[in-house]
Structures are given as structure tokens and as C-alpha cells.
Design a protein around this nucleic acid. Structure first.
Lengths: 112, 112
DNA sequence: CATTCATATGAACGTCTACTCATATATTAT
DNA sequence: ATAATATATGAGTAGACGTTCATATGAATG
């Protein structure tokens, strides 16, 4: 194996600590599922209650609730209760920004 | 179950087609792994060969190669061969932007 | 051509994950 | 209190995923 010490030293300096990189990966993992992505996108315009989301995505209430919990634990969404109904909404504008960047990437060089 | 037809109609209009949302999730999935995140970050400054990356991350060459393939299939990185050595580099500036947005999110409200 | 070095790849294996199903909790209405 | 509605949650399961191990490919060197 040839030598890389010089390059690696430089690269290491520019990198955040391991822990931070893993947290970063954990964050992106939240966006890395079709169901969660749809949920997040559905909250772009307005808050929605659980059963509205499950109706929109045509999935069971249970499946949606499980994913909502994951998103809430990740601080991407928050909720408020109004009687029996619980409304979920985006917790942070970063969510929109991050998804927007990804969207730009995949739609780049497309027309249809 | 109460009625959501009015709200859902609005929300549906604002949402991209299902296929696109899944592709978006697939994109973010690429960032959603510690090893891949480290690889991408290590390529922020300069291109690197496989064994440099595996030395940097202290992981086997095989593990790194597998992940490089995933990133390459996802068009986040590209490579060039120079003799026996293969150098990998970021394929797109979007990668930096997207990761940057995520980084901002997780470092928000931190000092240490 | 055989060897060595750098990288790629297929199979196997253990772990993680997203869903389902059953059930629990919480709130309102009767 | 009982029933009904909306949501949450634990256990179980099938499939996806990341690593390892063994091996293959590809290029330079003797």
C-alpha cells in the first residue's frame, strides 16, 4: 500500500468529529424513507392530523403513527392536541430547505 | 373518522408525484449512513484513492469499495483510474450543499 | 508470463427497519 | 360508567442493509 500520510493529514483537519458525522447521517436517515418523505412533504403546506395523513398516503393509521414518532423523535416535526385529534406540523424550516436542495438535485436536467 | 377531503385536496396539489418523492427518499438514503457520510465528507477537499479512504476511516478496503459503489450508482461520486489506483471525487456540488444544510441543522444552537 | 499491488464483487451472516396485528391510552359524547 | 373516536405502542415478522470473507479483475513490474 502506498503512502497517504500527507493527504490524509489535510483531509482529517477539514472533517468534523466522528460523532457529529454520525448524527448527520442519522438526520439524513430520517429523510431516507418513502413514507417519511411523503409525510414531511404533506406537512409543507399546513398541519395535518394523523388520520388525514393516513388517508392521504393510503396507509394504516398504525404505520403512520410509527413513522410520526420517528420524525418527532428526530425533531423534524412537532404536534399539538385538539380534543381527540392530534395535529402534526414541521418543527423547523430547515426541513423545507434540506428537502428542497435534494429536490433540486433530482430534478436537475429534467423537463417532463 | 372525520372528513378531510377539503384539506387533502389542497395538500395533494402541492405534492410532487409519488415516484419523484421516492427518488428523493432514495437520494437521502445515500447520506443516511455513517460510513457513506464520512466518505463523502472526506472527498470535500480533494479526490482520494480507495485505500486512502479505508486508511482514513480505519475500515477494510472491501467495506469501503462496497459503499463507494453505492455512492457511485447514486451519482454522488465519480472516479478516474490512474494505473492501479482509482481516485474518487464528488460528482456534484449539490452534495456539498445538501450536506451543508444538514450540518447547519444539527449544529444549530450548539457552542461546544 | 508470473507476481504484486489496488480495487471490485459475490455470497453469507447478523442487524436494523418498516409494516402488521392486537391492544392500550386519551378524549368526547351518550 | 359505557361507548365511540383518534392516536399510540409493543411484539412479531419479512425484507433491506452493511460488514466480512473469499475470490476475481485489472494494471504495473520483474
Amino acid at each position: 500500500m502506498h503512502d497517504h500520510s500527507k493527504v490524509l493529514e489535510e483531509v482529517k483537519k477539514g472533517m468534523p468529529e466522528e460523532k457529529k458525522l454520525c448524527r448527520l447521517a442519522e438526520l439524513f436517515k430520517l429523510f431516507g424513507d418513502g413514507t417519511r418523505m411523503k409525510i414531511l412533504y404533506s406537512l409543507f403546506e399546513s398541519e395535518l392530523c394523523v388520520c388525514a395523513i393516513s388517508e392521504l398516503l393510503q396507509m394504516t393509521q398504525s404505520a403512520i403513527s410509527h413513522q410520526l414518532k420517528i420524525l418527532r423523535d428526530g425533531n423534524l416535526i412537532a404536534n399539538r392536541r385538539e380534543g381527540k385529534t392530534v395535529y402534526y406540523f414541521l418543527a423547523d424550516d430547515h426541513v423545507r430547505t434540506i428537502i428542497g436542495q435534494g429536490y433540486e438535485h433530482i430534478t436537475e436536467g429534467e423537463e417532463k
